[in-house]
């Protein structure tokens, strides 16, 4: 497999894993939980290194997931006191956990292979160099891991499709039919955490957060059905991966950054050009209606 292909595939898998969850985050108005969870897992990664002296992906993912759950539950607890609004609760909990992680890194692990840059800014350009051998076939580790996450997320969304849909659309109704919105929300955020952590390692935090929020937000401007929204989200994600890679090669710039920029451009296009909810469409519609009203009024006056 060529290096370029590996990079594109890795990014595409990140886009897929994130794109399956992102629409639910955007619709539930917790898009920023992805940013929060992505940062809150740092102490988990550090703790695993300190306790077991390993950076092997599985233990790291488990350790990070533990802190993702701590983050989610901490935010829930703070919010449930009704003394702190939910956005403030997010803004309090994740920096605290992140701070814990930074302290851990600088205090205990300095000099080891666990530096902040590698943890937070895993670099997608290095993805092809880290391979696992299966018999005679060598596959990039990131592809294996992310493939597994895509599979897990797809299973989760497929199995809990109607539960996720119902709790997101109408939580109160869901409770009356015995589907707990809290449980679904926790499951979703744990999936976000596992996705984020796994993807971190290979592509860096910012691309994960971008892929979780931006394509879904763009799709939200384009779609009237949930299934379509997820499909469009995935499409935009892959487009960003492929185009972003090309741009990065041409401009000799950061691959993750370029992919993020392409996704951002997609959002801007959707914002302006969406046939139904776009700025342009709505401005035209407004103008047309105004013209119609004026014509109708003129007619009425003439008839009188």
């Amino acid at each position: 497999m060529s290096d370029d292909l590996t990079i594109i595939l890795t990014a595409g898998l990140v886009a897929t894993a994130a794109g399956l969850l992102g629409p639910f985050l955007v619709l539930r108005r917790v898009a920023l939980m992805s940013d929060a969870v992505s940062h809150a897992v740092l102490p988990g990664i550090v703790a695993v290194y300190l306790l077991f002296e390993t950076r092997a992906p599985l233990p790291v993912i488990v350790g990070a997931a533990v802190f993702a759950v701590v983050c989610v539950i901490g935010i829930d607890l703070l919010r449930s006191t009704r003394l702190v609004a939910s956005d403030a609760a997010i803004a309090l909990v994740f920096p605290a956990l992140f701070a814990l992680g930074v302290l851990g890194v600088t205090e205990f692990a300095s000099g080891a292979h666990l530096d902040l840059d590698a943890t937070i800014y895993g670099e997608i350009a290095f993805a092809p160099f880290d391979v696992w051998a299966f018999g005679s076939v060598e596959v990039a580790r990131s592809i294996v891991l992310l493939g597994a996450v895509v599979l897990a997320n797809a299973t989760l969304v497929a199995l809990l499709w109607k539960e996720l849909k119902a709790t997101t659309f109408d939580p109160e109704f869901s409770r009356t039919i015995g589907i707990s919105p809290t449980l679904l929300s926790r499951l979703l955020l744990i999936a976000v955490a596992v996705t984020a952590v796994t993807a971190f390692e290979s592509v860096g935090a910012i691309l994960v957060v971008t892929m979780l929020i931006v394509p879904a937000a763009a799709a939200y401007l384009l779609c009237d059905r949930l299934l379509a929204m997820i499909a469009v989200t995935l499409g935009i994600g892959w487009l960003s991966a492929v185009l972003g890679h090309t741009v990065a090669l041409r401009a000799d710039a950061s691959i993750a950054g370029s992919m993020g920029l392409v996704a951002a451009c997609c959002f801007v296009l959707a914002l302006v050009l969406s046939p139904k909810y776009g700025l342009l469409a709505r401005a035209l519609q407004r103008r047309r209606r105004r013209r119609e009203v004026r014509a109708a009024l003129a007619e009425a006056h003439a008839a009188r």
């Binding site: 619709l27 199995l159 809990l160 499709w161 109607k162 539960e163 849909k165 119902a166 997101t168 659309f169 109408d170 109160e172 109704f173 039919i177 015995g178 589907i179 939200y220 779609c223 009237d224 059905r225 949930l226 379509a228 929204m229």
Partner: peptide, 27 residues
Amino acid sequence: AVDWDFPITVREVVEMGRYAPTGWFRR
């Protein structure tokens, strides 16, 4: 209490009435 911007059709909303008898995980 409901999010009216949600990307969902009329029929899908009515179908939610069948969620409880269908049970978890199933379509």
